[in-house]
């Protein structure tokens, strides 16, 4: 069997397993899993930039927040329905990541991390500044009646679960496809040796910019989906910890792997949940990962057992 068909089977099996999960898991855990899938989309978006292109951003909460508030404000203040709301979220994230990418990519390494951190901080403060509309830290709630797409009530637990699953599957297959295209391979080449990739004739700046925009827009999709499915937008989702979370998820699950982001999100979500929301756990995991397993769970599995792992 070729590696490509193995990869397709793996991804499909994962989606099937998630479908089964809804029917076998207790309600509480199924609810958690819906949330995890939405955050895994965020992590997959982050992974495209960090894991595949090798660019460590500390400001992805800006893109998550752009999607969240793009959809949230369009529905809350603009009164549009869910469909155009999602579009508004995606466009907001796309524009914001385009601008941030254009500016931040003039730097590299540590400067890139700090620039993205600063932009995200400015974004978070902007949400607070316009508290009249965003209601700042307290946030706002989308009325249940508006949270429907094509007549399907997305506030219903089952509909919500499968909506999250469909989005998750789309992004998973998209990224699985993207990283095997010449474009995706070039991103990996940039991660491994930027100067060599440039001297093979690749337009590095353009590739990186597209990577930032794709990564930012997928993160924005996650933010918009969260707002729509769980019905609220709060400034906290645009703050620094939400820039750290996807880094944590991806590092734990395995950077540069297609299913690592989901695995990392799953583990981290339950770890933080189990510790009663204490970020100490996140801290310990981060230090431990940096020290002992810089390639994460799936990176280790790939290295030791399954070399074809995507």
């Amino acid at each position: 069997m070729s590696d490509i068909s193995r990869i397709h089977i793996l991804h499909a099996a994962m989606v099937v397993a998630l479908v089964i999960c809804w029917f076998v898991l207790p309600v509480y855990h199924a609810g958690n899993l819906a949330r995890i899938m939405v955050f895994a989309i965020y992590a997959m978006g982050y992974n495209l930039l960090f894991g595949y292109t090798g660019l460590l951003s500390l400001g992805h909460a800006l893109f998550f927040g752009a999607g969240m508030y793009g959809l949230g404000l369009a529905m809350h203040l603009g009164g549009v329905s869910a469909g155009p709301g999602i579009l508004a979220g995606l466009i907001t994230a796309l524009v914001v990541s385009g601008v941030v990418g254009f500016l931040a990519l003039r730097t590299s390494g540590v400067a890139f991390m700090i620039v993205t951190l600063m932009f995200a901080q400015a974004g978070y403060l902007t949400v607070l500044l316009f508290g009249t509309y965003t209601r700042g830290d307290e946030g706002f709630v989308l009325p249940q009646a508006t949270r429907a797409l094509m007549g399907i009530d997305l506030s219903d637990a089952q509909n919500r679960y499968f909506a999250a699953l469909i989005l998750f599957a789309i992004v998973l297959f998209f990224i699985g496809w993207l990283v095997r295209t010449p474009f995706g391979r070039c991103l990996v080449a940039i991660r491994e040796n930027e100067e060599r990739a440039r001297m093979l004739g690749y337009d590095i700046t353009r590739h990186k910019l597209i990577a930032v925009i794709l990564s930012g827009t997928i993160s924005g999709l996650s933010g918009a989906a969260y707002c729509l499915l769980f019905g609220s937008a709060q400034a906290a989702f645009a703050a620094v910890p939400y820039s750290i979370f996807p880094l944590l998820y991806v590092l734990l699950g395995g950077m540069g792997t297609t299913i690592g982001p989901f695995v990392g999100t799953l583990f981290m979500f339950y770890l933080i949940d189990w510790s009663g929301g204490n970020m100490m756990v996140a801290g310990v995991v981060l230090v431990a990962l940096a020290l002992f397993a810089p390639t994460g769970i799936l990176g280790e599995i790939r290295r030791r057992f399954i070399p074809w792992l995507p």
Partner: peptide, 10 residues
């Protein structure tokens, strides 16, 4: 950076 972020939370 990753490790000091961890240290921050700890």
């Amino acid at each position: 950076i990753v490790a000091t972020i961890g240290l921050l939370y700890i």
